[in-house]
């Protein structure tokens, strides 16, 4: 089957994607996970040995895991942990990353080189080592993971911000602004930042997914702290060990992660589409 290449301008000018869908999904995910304490669910940590690996039933709508814990309860409670670590990690990556990246891209020269060398130093640090170091310094647990994830993502965000600034920096309207004597701070705030907004939002969406996945990877490698505290990444890994005997264990956290990442990305898309439309 041959699909004709669409009109490039036409495809660019179609309706922006709606905010409603991703906002709705994210709200549902957040509300449900936050509501976990109110839902009268079994304790997510209570293992009932006799009831392990039970398929979904009325008593356990999502079945039980290898230790006989309620998968529904663990999925909801686990959401709180996962989202918290991801938001913290993404926040640690995005805020300083943005500032450093924009500074580097705008100033160029030695500021740029030094800042980027600093970022390279951080990037050159293997994730694993960041995990180990944060755990050794502030103890195992979700904050260590969030910090490690954030530090790992920070240089990436800085690099993307810098590249975006570089793209618009040499545009004629910036030159023009310089020529008519607009102060650099204003150029940055009113001329450069608005024009790179979509790249930044887009990458923030990616950062959130990264934070979820990097956290999961660190937990997989044994840096997770208390294994009893539920978390989607850890649940996926527990489910992996028995995925042929008990596929129901990995499915709910898997769907939850996919939905969250889908929504985060769509939200970024929607931002970007409105930004594109505005021009």
């Amino acid at each position: 089957m041959r699909i004709p290449l669409p009109d490039l301008i036409g495809s660019a000018q179609r309706q922006p994607r709606p905010f409603a869908v991703p906002v709705m999904i994210l709200s549902i995910v957040v509300v449900i996970t936050l509501a976990a304490p109110l839902l009268n669910l079994p304790d997510p940590r209570t293992a009932v040995a006799e009831a392990h690996l039970r398929p979904p039933s009325l008593e356990h709508p999502f079945g039980t895991d290898a230790l006989g814990r309620d998968v529904l309860s663990r999925t909801l409670w686990g959401g709180q942990q996962t989202l918290l670590v991801a938001l913290l990690g993404a926040g640690i990556a995005i805020l300083p990353g943005l500032v450093l990246g924009v500074m580097a891209g705008y100033n160029q020269g030695w500021t740029d080189r030094l800042l980027m060398a600093g970022m390279d130093i951080l990037l050159a640090f293997p994730n694993l080592l960041l995990g180990l170091a944060t755990i050794a310094l502030i103890g195992p647990g979700r904050f260590s993971i969030a910090l490690a994830v954030g530090l790992a993502g920070l240089p990436a965000y800085a690099r993307v911000a810098r590249a975006a600034v570089l793209m618009v920096r040499s545009a004629p309207y910036i030159d023009a602004a310089h020529a008519i004597g607009v102060p650099p701070g204003q150029i940055l705030l009113f001329h450069i930042l608005p024009n790179i907004r979509e790249s930044l939002f887009s990458f923030a969406g990616v950062s959130l997914s990264w934070a979820i996945l990097n956290g999961a990877a660190l937990a997989f490698l044994g840096f997770g702290g208390d294994p009893a505290i539920p978390d989607w990444g850890a649940m996926l890994n527990e489910g992996r060990a028995v995925f042929r005997l008990a596929p129901w264990i990995a499915l709910p956290p898997g769907i939850a992660i996919t939905l969250t990442i889908f929504a985060a990305n769509r939200l970024a898309d929607a931002w970007q589409d409105t930004a594109g439309h505005r021009i």
């Binding site: 996945l213 969250t260 990442i261 889908f262």
Partner: peptide, 11 residues
Amino acid sequence: NVLALAAPIYW
């Protein structure tokens, strides 16, 4: 694309 972003390598 979403699947690539969402699925951990170990899975």
